[in-house]
Design a binder for these strands. Structure first.
Lengths: 245, 245
DNA sequence: GACCTTACGTCAACACCATTGACGTGTAAA
DNA sequence: TTTACACGTCAATGGTGTTGACGTAAGGTC
């Protein structure tokens, strides 16, 4: 049972299932994404996916070695959708900002799948393509290689980490999500000045701010710091404005 | 079976299990943490925890409504440990850096609990305590309230998001984790210069850098940016050094 | 010390999960 | 037309969280 999977390229026989579906890697991934989008991350199981496809669950093992391989395929699809139609502007700040927001947005738009996907390295084409692009932005932007690599790492992990964080918030089972929201009113709103002076003093600001994602601001902070680290900033620390000089 | 759980405060009867263990919320949480530390993330299941305690697995449901409640309890313990023995130095850079690394480190040391808890708001004492401390660092450090709140949000979310990200890596089933690592050698190492010039040019640097967490550098970048945003930096953009002037 | 109440540990069962070896059918190539 | 084998199906294995029923022993009361 070791060589069960035939790679998609060399598949030839397309035998339909009892229920008439003709399976393919593509169809399976799409169905999985639809399943997750409709019924939540916990709805994704081999059995349910088999049912949604109109096939025996074990048929999936003809296409993916195990569920992990299937997950990686799903991840790559999400990464691909994030890059669709992107064009480099030539300014590294603009391009990094756009890339960050695209990655973050794409994952958050598929919260359930993002949760499964955000921490894996797939090595598939869409992923390597994204890595290549971001490294290109930094190197073409004038960052020396060792710095570019460190920045790439921090930048990508920040985008993915926040994406997962925000996706998780929207993907929580409804009960848990409401419980979390209530905590802000029930617990934080009632903390006395004596024990928690800083929370008490800033409570209205806190409640308002915590409603949105912290990523856009965190991203701007990272870009600000990168201005400082950029070789051009060495002698003449420019005022870090986006507008034309 | 609805009112199965008796809150820890009003427990009185301490009946030992067949194997002689006397259960308690505390003992269960500690045992769970030990189990994970010793045998890895995948060793934490109700059945295995029951065995480690010397009790029937279902006995746990006398103490926690479900595994989610158990993991949240574990989480509060982790937040608590992150702050143990911390003392404010008075310098906001130093204190933020220490707090960030403590939170991140503490979560990463308990990957599976971190995964569940990093995006939840518990409102329990250890959590509110941490919020209060970080807000204090920023406000005492001279950040005006609206900025302090925004920075707090970005800072905490970044620490938690990276913690979850890195925790996820160590919490992966062993096979999946190795697969991710291998991808860096098998796929990224073989990408040709023609299609992926930037990856090919920086590959050795990339491999070396991706082995560690991106968080420490991301944290330094955030601190650098905060120097720029701090009111003191307005007229005389100081050279952003940690040493004495 | 005897009695009650009931907390709580135990047992058995349920429904779900991923995975795999064996099997036979239908497809595509020869 | 024959043949090989890809691949869909079936059945079984050993894991998971969770729950209802049950009895025992612990604690409070007298």
């Amino acid at each position: 049972m070791s060589a069960r999977v035939v790679p998609e390229g060399s598949r030839q026989r397309r035998r339909p299932t009892k229920q008439g579906a003709v399976l393919s890697e593509r169809l399976i991934v799409d169905t999985a994404l639809r399943l997750v989008a409709q019924h939540g991350a916990e709805a994704l199981s081999v059995r349910r996916l088999g049912a949604a496809l109109g096939a025996d669950p074990s048929a999936l093992y003809r296409y993916f070695r195990n569920t992990d391989a299937l997950l990686l395929a799903i991840c790559d699809e999400i990464i691909g959708r994030a890059q669709e139609g992107w064009e480099a502007s030539g300014d590294w700040r603009t391009d990094l900002r756009a890339m960050g927001m695209r990655i973050h947005g794409s994952y958050v738009s598929q919260p359930q799948a993002a949760l499964l996907a955000a921490h894996r390295t797939t090595g598939r084409p869409n992923e390597t393509g994204a890595v290549e692009k971001i490294l290109g932005i930094l190197r073409d932007g004038g960052f020396p290689d060792p710095l570019a690599v460190r920045v790439y790492h921090a930048f990508v992990d920040q985008a993915l980490a926040f994406a997962a964080q925000d996706a998780a918030a929207s993907a929580l089972p409804k009960a848990a999500g409401e419980a979390d929201t209530e905590v802000w009113g029930d617990v934080y709103g009632r903390l006395p000045t004596e024990t928690h002076p800083n929370i008490a003093a800033t409570y209205p600001l806190l409640v308002a701010d915590m409603r949105d994602s912290g990523y856009p601001f965190a991203l701007e902070l990272m870009l600000t710091a990168l201005e400082t680290l950029h070789p051009d900033a060495a002698g003449h620390p420019r005022k870090a404005r986006r507008q034309a000089p």
